[in-house]
Design a protein around this nucleic acid. Structure first.
Lengths: 340, 340
DNA sequence: GAATTTTCGGAAAATGTTTTCCTAAACATC
DNA sequence: GATGTTTAGGAAAACATTTTCCGAAAATTC
């Protein structure tokens, strides 16, 4: 591998001249420029990115902290992120948290030790952890589809409450009054969606029955169990709103096993519009999220923050946090299929 | 951020001593050791990984080239990879190729420019490209679930031919004789699985009809179209082997829409055992691949190669390619569900 | 044609490590 | 007591860049 010194020697110029033509940082006479380009070509020279990182304090690497890459929703977010980062010449490093949220701090440190230029969080942290993080470093951070309100940390996603509201309203408009809810209460996501449910019920003058509420982690299997539990109580909802598609297909499955017909005997509405909602029979009616776009927007915003920060560092030399105070809310939509 | 010099000053020792206690590369007296540790603690010192990379010529970063992260199969592979790399203190950088295989070379260059220590390929390249790659660099490379035979490049996956053979044999054992095939012929995967189909048919004395063979890209929608096409020809297979679960659920859907009952009128068997095969009704009978384990094994092997190489570089100083000549074949299995 | 400004190339410092090469002391051997 | 062998620990080179500073040459102005 040739280095800048070899190119300089070959082209008969100084090291700095080579650097200047490579980065266009200062004007260089056409004559020398050509000599440098020729040498670069002949030796197939590529500037060493590590050495550049060291001096420029920029790795062109962003970190993505994700609960589980193999989950369809997160994988799609990731794909959106990757698309725009790749275009902007950033690499993305992933960090799979699985469910061991305890080691959260460790993951942050890992990314920071690798000097990522910024982080996208797909995984829910406590607000304290986020504040802690901000205190510790001024590495840009954005939350994608993690609806937390933390001063200085931008969020991109949908309006969870109103999306849930729309889902439940749809059920109500179709004539349902006894509406069950399967949700998870240990994430902000689940809680907000539940809020949307409650609001819709209230706004339409429906009473919420305690026994119609069931909570479980977000997975097909847990959705099944939750539905079982819901039916066990003797409750007979005519429709169920599940705060994720996985839960919904699990729940549907349970209903099916209990001899209930969907949508004749019981209706279901999901949330997210991931792949499985389009392969189950009947097709799952659900709330569509522009998942990939959320990823893209998050990446776009993060890169913007990174570049803004590195510009300001260059000029003022200071390290004031360039805190972007923004929330990017994308449009969700109801997609009617066959389960209500 | 403190650097090694500051620690040295604080502890009242030389830079090299600090380095030595950090890496345990040479013995240091307990007294000085303690002083260094105290300084490190007090200043919360973390060695700068970039500077280390520069001198050690090791980034502790591996690259994963993947056709599409949002695809369930690849996402699972990735998750397996990430699990073992994280444990071994390697980061993983992803490179989403989407379908533009043309720019393949560009992706390799991208990874090499970032000086990844090794690459896992989940995306099929031509053998020429791989040879080209090997000629260009001696960065370790392993193929995960890309069944290509290239000298010096290890592969980890399943025995595609025999897995396909098992699938078709299962159909035959259940009494089917008219067996259709939906496959893709532009990947080694599709071709090998087709081979398995052919072998099974031949071994059981069944004739293969040209009109029973349909090919299409691997997706639910294409599977649907392929099935449509298959039925259009007037052929009436009693079972269809689809070389991926996506194709299979698409094909099943088509059958369903044509008024055929599964499995009474027509049977289906898929391949991969990804999530959707467990949510469709009836549940898809399929060939199970230990996807996550493939990812894990690939990562394990790659890291082994990397460390072996860096050891040999250290001792002999040479840069002979430490070519591992291995193929790791994991066990597949038939999982009987409801579609045959 | 002289004075002033602009342009451009080169030397050297800076980035934060690891590692090689020394020196000097401690220890063992004869 | 003299000599050889470990061992601890420091100075400096090496890694591959970018960037600042400086001086020389060229271009512009009066």
């Amino acid at each position: 591998m040739p280095n800048i010194k070899m190119i300089a020697r070959k082209a008969g110029v100084s090291i700095s001249t080579v650097s200047r033509v490579m980065n266009g940082s200062k004007p260089v006479s056409p004559d020398l420029q050509k000599r440098v380009y020729d040498a670069v070509q002949q030796m197939n020279y590529k500037p060493n990115s590590i050495a550049r990182s060291l001096i420029l304090k920029k790795t062109n690497l962003i970190g993505v902290v994700v609960p589980d890459v193999s989950n369809s929703f997160h994988a799609q977010l990731l794909s959106g992120i990757e698309e725009v980062t790749a275009q902007a010449d950033y690499g993305v490093m992933i960090c799979n948290v699985y469910r061991n949220m305890k080691q959260q701090q460790k993951y942050f440190n890992l990314m920071l030790e690798r000097h990522v230029d910024g982080i996208i969080l797909l995984h829910e942290n406590t607000i304290e952890e986020l504040n802690e993080f901000q205190k510790m470093t001024n590495t840009p951070l954005v939350l994608a589809s993690v609806p937390l309100e933390v001063p200085g940390i931008p969020f991109v996603g949908i309006d969870e409450i109103s999306a849930a509201y729309d889902a439940v309203t749809h059920l109500i408009e179709k004539g349902h009054q006894e509406i069950g809810l399967i949700y998870g209460d240990c994430t902000a996501l689940g809680i907000l969606r539940k809020e949307g449910y409650e609001k819709a019920m209230r706004d339409h003058g429906l009473t919420m029955k305690e026994e119609y509420l069931t909570q479980c982690p977000c997975s097909v299997d847990h959705g099944y169990q939750a539905m079982e539990q819901l039916l066990c109580t003797g409750a007979h909802p005519t429709a169920v709103f599940c705060v994720s598609d996985e839960m919904a297909v699990g729940a549907m499955d349970c209903a099916y096993d209990k001899g209930l017909r969907v949508p004749e005997d019981i209706s279901f509405i999901g949330f997210d519009d991931i792949e499985i909602s389009q392969v189950v029979r009947p097709r799952l009616t659900t709330i569509h999220q522009p998942i990939k776009d959320i990823g893209k927007e998050a990446a776009r915003l993060l890169i913007e923050m990174i570049e803004k920060k590195s510009r300001s560092m260059k000029h003022s030399g200071g390290d004031q946090a360039a805190s972007e105070e923004s929330r990017i809310i994308l449009k969700h939509s109801l997609v009617e299929r066959g389960t209500v």
